[in-house]
Design a protein around this nucleic acid. Structure first.
Lengths: 239, 239
DNA sequence: GCGGTTAGTTGAACGTGTTCAAATTTCGCT
DNA sequence: AGCGAAATTTGAACACGTTCAACTAACCGC
């Protein structure tokens, strides 16, 4: 409910059709020529619409990227959910989900740099860190909730609560690496995933030890604070 | 030597003067009106040069930012070096340097977002992570070498060698937080610095323990790999 | 079906970063 | 001083993202 926000309200079947057409055309062209090389004029023309019409549905060229997030996220979920059923331990569940994410993004590697650039801009409405209400982000974190839920190992409540967010941030880090990774078949990224998933798993075990309670509390408080700070950014415009 | 690279070679006193004038004018205007609001035309006009002339000295508007890095870095060093003389333990040395960095950047908080945005773009020539040869980055890491050098505590060689780079990355993280931080007087950032410096210090102690050797080796190898991957990005254009 | 309101569509115009061929100035040398 | 080459300077032109006032089509209540 609260998840849907600024999404341009389409009020007419015809309008919906136009919107979809423009969007698909744009994504096709991004894939084919890259983001920078694809002009709004070209998108409009190929979609059989006018330039202004494209801007009626998408506030800016960047906003088209939001739709891209959504599309690839849906694909990712479609692959990940069935795959998760085969695993019940944290390590292999996390490994599965992260590997499949990269798998999903693979075709877009060439212009992924742009995505990250806009995502990292604190001012951008697309920054997934800054926008708590961003539906794609919420859905994305939900997937990691599922990863955690299906785990049998004993994890303290406080850590368990924060874990989906932490794993989501971790997977964003992997994506960042992948964007930079020029190795053949992204081997480096896969190796990194293997290693770091292992480490993450161990750290969760370690952090679940009763011994670690004070340190864990401390660290989780810090994480909370970081999260708050990131999310305050957009509020500044609401005054 | 190898540190100076693409820097536009100025071959004439007159040229040098023009270059400096344009640069200073640009930085002034960035401070006054922000980066986006300052147009190349406005810079050129105020500097008494032509538009094309500005582009003769600076390949793009973004390249003017490189000069900004340089300027603030110089200021930072000027503050940090004397201050470091008063401390000989890791914790207070690191605290000093990082606090002073934020101090130095303070006047530019309003448009710092732009800086980070361009810095985070893997394609950008300004990405400090991707460009090993970037003189500003080298100088910046050197400062953290000094932080480590002046420490009396015993740190294993392998860790000591990697530490300046790690601390530099840590301080980039702090800057990232600060950019997002809208709290009055950046209190949140200073609190974060207090806490994390403490943690970093403890982790260095922990990691220096002979017990930790295997884990440390493992982690350092990972760091090395991450670093390599980041720096390979620019090479791809050299073919 | 009609009139009015809302949704959708158009393309010209604007501002901006960037490029470039041509003009001008400075330099190094005799 | 004078000359050719190199460095610097110019501003018009281009391409692109974005805006907007005007126009047209669809919808809704009667």
């Amino acid at each position: 409910m609260a998840a849907m926000r600024k999404k341009k309200a389409v009020k007419t079947p015809k309008g919906d059709q136009t919107r979809t057409l423009i969007l698909n055309t744009a994504l096709d062209m991004f894939l084919e020529r890259g983001y920078e090389q694809t002009t709004m004029r070209a998108i409009a023309e190929k979609a059989g619409a006018s330039l202004g019409n494209a801007y009626y549905y998408f506030r800016s060229k960047e906003h088209l990227i939001q739709a891209f997030y959504q599309t690839t996220h849906d694909q990712h979920v479609a692959l990940a959910l069935p795959a998760l059923e085969k695993h019940d331990d944290m390590k292999s569940r996390l490994l599965t989900v992260v590997q499949l994410k990269i798998e999903t993004l693979k075709p877009y590697h060439q212009f992924a740099g742009v995505l990250f650039k806009t995502a990292a801009d604190p001012q951008s409405p697309l920054n997934p860190f800054a926008d708590e209400a961003n539906p794609v982000r919420q859905a994305s974190i939900q997937l990691f909730e599922k990863v955690v839920e299906g785990t049998k190992s004993r994890i303290p409540k406080d850590l368990r609560a924060e874990l989906p967010y932490l794993l989501w941030v971790y997977h964003m880090g992997i994506i960042l690496f992948w964007i930079h990774d020029r190795s053949p078949k992204h081997r480096r990224t896969y190796r990194l995933i293997d290693r770091t998933v292992e480490m993450v798993d161990r750290m969760i075990q370690l952090g679940s030890n009763p011994f670690m309670r004070p340190l864990r509390k401390h660290a989780l408080a810090l994480v909370d604070e970081l999260r708050d700070a990131a999310e305050d950014v957009l509020d500044a415009d609401d005054n």
